[in-house]
Design a protein around this nucleic acid. Structure first.
Length: 821
RNA sequence: GCCCCGAUAGCCCAAUGGCAGAGGCAGACGACUUAAAAUCGUCACAGUGUGGGUUCGAGUCCCACUCGGGGCACCA
């Protein structure tokens, strides 16, 4: 009897079966399959899963399931990035316990992931807010600390007045807080840092290993972010003072063109020089500094901003020619980049010439680029050219002059070749509650004392009784029972560090914790790392292109140097899926275009939604939900399901006697599907499955009929392929075809290449690239035979009338192109 | 301002330098039906954003531009 395809029924039917079978258990001891590690970026547990998760996990699942059906033991774990501000904000707003709020959301998301049939290994799960996880954050922090890679310093840090916490450079976007869009201000604080800058060169250079494996966009964003520039540090003596100004420049070739110097207004050196200046200059400087401090980054970054500054009354001496040049301060020079001071070469730098024009300072051309003299035109020239007015550098090209100038200052001892990075050290302290406590104890006598390893974890105290609302200092400071301890060194009274770690610390190494998610002995076992890591395929949003991926790469390199892993890049391949939009813009409640995932799943079923995500387009493109049709996906799945229902042959493993045409369609499908999935063209893979379905439908209704064994072969491969996108439907098809669960472990058939070889093919004849005729030919046809055939064609003869043949290109058996005059 | 990516049918998207169409949506028509839905089938629709170039041959490679998206940006 023919049944109907019933989405709800098959979902209810198979979920418990899978729970029982655990097809994605990657820890079986006797497993001899080769390994693959497929990882989806773990979610933040704020509320239930949304459409974005649905896309990411659908795509990650296609890859994980594919390798499983290719015979690999696939580790595909999941966890929760569970610390962070939203839990606290929920706590503050609604009076909830952040811990309870977080675990409730995790439970809800976990249930949704099960329903969504994610092929996760449910025995490898972690939550970063568990002490069993974050104790290893603390352990790793102390490892870094012992190597000088974690340190504390006072500086002007980015401060979000709304979140009331400091932010890493990476969390400041266009002068705004990444999280709440408040204008970020500066505050002088003593904070913990990780010394990422020690790894700047390796972080940059190793990107070349990822070329072709990571999206080029992400590689270029990381390169931009690290921002290495090559040049020189050059010292300028200050006239009449036992003091010098050191500058970083990428253009030492223009040293003769330096006509003034500029110090960052908020630098220490500026302060110092101002103090040594005449009282009226000091006053001008102080007034200026006040103004500068008031301006925020938004104002400072405005492109049409007028140059401002103050002359300090001092003169510096150009080390290459002892030229006497004035020293100014301005806010267009940044205190925290390079040395906080520049030599200004107005002839060849846009900013410098603007400043020179504003304050009527001299412009002196030293590179002749063939353009008008900047001193006349008022436009700086920055291109290559011939060095002029520069003593021993005259006549050299830009790049030769750069080397030569470095040589000259090195000989004089007034400078040397240098490189500079845009990358700053990673500020990891946060003045918030819901995070990993920093495992340091401050003792008046002993200073910073690491918490001894055997006392880890330093558990976060209960939030009860603590005021979590942002106030600029950590809420933990008020947990006096927790805060006050004895110094591990001297036993005297001491206090715990009350800040918590940036949650990006948690996610910087979580992919390794999945190797041994429950170990109390080690963060992860080296042997397991050798077996599984690095991650073969990482899947996640491009929003993490800089922050998370850079930090994870940094951690991996540190762990490599410590000897804990033997690789230096954590994620061999990276796939960035696009976003799910609605009517052209990101979904949001306030915009009123929110599509609820749970609703979509109720209406169309899990499989149809997953399939829609995969079929919508290339995975890295955004999906506009208004452009796609989950109803059509459901319709297709029903059509495929009916194929399995119609197959009337008994299960059989030898398909040789099946209809050749149908077999050919199946094996063509297998070859094309493999190619499509392995190159991440999931939409094309789905299209090929649709094509096979159409072919089988026709074979059943109008061709060889449902009993031909080739139809069974096709239906079985179709079920296996659909298992990547639509696991419930595929499992049911597999059963209809007379097999035991689970299709997720069934292997794809080997492509029988014999079936793909064509006997006949279509040859086309072009004249000057335009199609004129085509005919069926034997694929073994020779070039000469094909030429004969083409030239004897009536259509070709007609088209060639009155034309002179120049050349005939033959690509047997497919093409003849006749070029004419 | 600099860098990167994209533009193919009414829509979403395919196409190792070789017949512009694999697949889907929407559409038209037909079969089944008393009728409709569902199902099954058939059909139509663009010469690939614009202008040059390379080539026997360009959607595909190169150059310039337009539009859209993204990244970086007073980084010396």
């Amino acid at each position: 009897m023919q049944e109907d395809y019933n989405v709800t029924a098959i979902q209810d039917k198979w979920l418990p079966v899978w729970d029982d079978l655990k097809p994605f258990d990657s820890s079986r001891k006797d497993d001899t399959r080769p390994t693959k590690y497929v990882l989806d970026m773990f979610p933040y547990p704020s509320g239930d899963l949304h459409m974005g998760h649905a896309e990411a996990y659908a795509l990650g699942d296609v890859i994980a399931r594919y390798w499983g059906q290719k015979g690999y033991n696939v580790m595909h774990p999941i966890g929760w990035d569970a610390f962070g501000l939203p839990a606290e904000n929920a706590a503050i707003k609604r009076g909830l316990d952040p811990r309870a709020w977080t675990y409730e959301n995790i439970a809800q998301q976990k249930a949704s992931m099960r329903r969504y049939a994610c092929s996760f290994d449910w025995d490898r799960v972690l939550q970063t807010c568990d002490p069993s996880y974050y104790q290893w954050n603390q352990w790793l922090f102390l490892e870094l600390y012992s190597r000088g890679l974690a340190y504390r310093k006072n500086s002007n840090v980015n401060w979000c007045p709304s979140c009331q916490t400091v932010l890493a450079n990476e969390q400041v976007v266009q002068g705004l807080c990444e999280r709440c869009d408040s204008v970020v201000t500066k505050k002088s604080l003593t904070q913990w840092y990780f010394k990422v800058t020690d790894y700047a060169d390796r972080l940059l250079d190793d990107l070349s290993q990822l070329e072709g494996k990571w999206p080029s966009k992400v590689l270029s964003m990381q390169r931009n972010w690290i921002g290495r520039s090559q040049g020189a540090n050059i010292d300028f003596a200050i006239e009449g003072m036992n003091q010098k100004i050191s500058v970083f420049t990428t253009r030492p070739d223009t040293l003769y063109g330096a006509t003034f110097m500029v110090l960052a207004a908020d630098s220490e050196l500026a302060q110092e020089l101002a103090s040594a200046a005449a009282p009226e200059i000091r006053e001008q400087f102080n007034n200026y500094l006040e103004e500068v401090k008031k301006a925020n980054d938004i104002e400072r970054l405005a492109t049409d901003r007028k140059k401002t500054g103050v002359f300090l009354g001092h003169y510096a001496l150009n080390p290459i020619n002892d030229e006497r040049i004035p020293v100014w301060v301005s806010d267009y020079v940044l205190a925290d980049y390079g040395t906080g001071a520049i030599m200004a070469v107005p002839a060849h730098d846009d900013r410098d010439i603007e400043f020179a024009k504003t304050f009527d300072l001299p412009v002196f051309m030293v590179v002749d680029t063939g353009e008008e003299d900047p001193a006349v035109s008022g436009i700086a020239t920055s291109g290559d050219g011939v060095i002029v007015n520069s003593g021993e550098l005259n006549g050299l090209s830009k790049s030769d002059a750069i080397s030569k100038a470095i040589e000259l200052v090195e000989v004089k001892g007034t400078g040397k070749g240098a490189k500079n990075f845009r990358l700053r050290d990673w500020l990891i302290s946060r003045q918030r509650y819901w995070g990993t406590p920093i495992p340091i104890i401050h003792c008046d006598k002993c200073g910073e004392v690491p918490v001894p390893a055997e006392q880890l974890p330093v558990e976060l105290p209960a939030s009860e009784g603590l005021d979590l609302s942002p106030k600029g200092t950590s809420p933990l400071g008020a947990a006096s029972d927790w805060l006050n301890v004895n110094c591990p060194k001297c036993g005297g009274k001491a206090k715990r560090d009350s800040d918590t770690m940036d949650t990006f610390v948690d996610s910087s190494w979580y992919f390794l914790r999945f190797l041994n998610p429950n170990s109390d002995e080690v963060p992860f076992e080296k042997a397991q790392a050798e077996k599984w890591a690095p991650v073969d395929q990482y899947v996640g949003g491009v929003t993490h292109a800089i922050l998370h991926l850079l930090y994870a790469r940094f951690f991996t390199k540190v762990l490599h140097d410590i000897g804990m892993v033997d690789f230096e890049e954590p994620f061999t391949r990276l796939l960035n899926q696009g976003m799910v939009l609605m009517n052209g813009s990101a979904m949001s409640k306030s915009r009123g275009n929110l599509v609820r995932l749970s609703e979509q799943l109720d209406i169309h079923g899990v499989d149809a939604i997953r399939l829609t995500m995969a079929f919508a387009g290339p995975p890295e493109d955004d999906i506009d939900w208004s452009d796609v049709s989950p109803a059509a996906s459901a319709k297709f799945l029903a059509r495929a399901w009916r194929i399995a229902q119609d197959v009337s042959s008994k299960p059989e493993s030898n398909f040789a006697s099946g209809d050749k045409g149908v077999r050919k369609a199946t094996h063509q499908f297998l070859a094309g599907f493999k190619e499509a999935i392995e190159s991440h063209k999931f939409n094309v893979g789905v299209a090929k499955a649709m094509e096979l379905t159409n072919h089988l439908r026709k074979a059943i209704d109008q061709g060889v009929g449902p009993a031909d064994i080739a139809v069974r072969e096709g239906a079985e491969e179709l079920a296996k392929a659909l298992s990547l996108f639509a696991p419930y439907t595929a499992e049911d098809m597999w059963q209809l075809l007379g097999h035991e669960p689970t299709v997720a472990l069934a292997q794809f058939a080997e492509v029988e290449n014999d079936l793909l070889v064509e006997q006949k093919g279509t040859a086309i004849v072009q004249i000057d690239g335009k199609l004129r005729d085509k005919f069926e030919v034997d694929v073994s046809i020779s070039e000469d035979e094909l030429r004969e055939l083409a030239l004897s064609s009536e259509l070709v003869k007609k088209a060639l009338q009155g034309k002179e043949t120049l050349n005939i290109i033959i690509r047997a058996p497919k093409l003849v192109n006749i070029a004419t005059k």
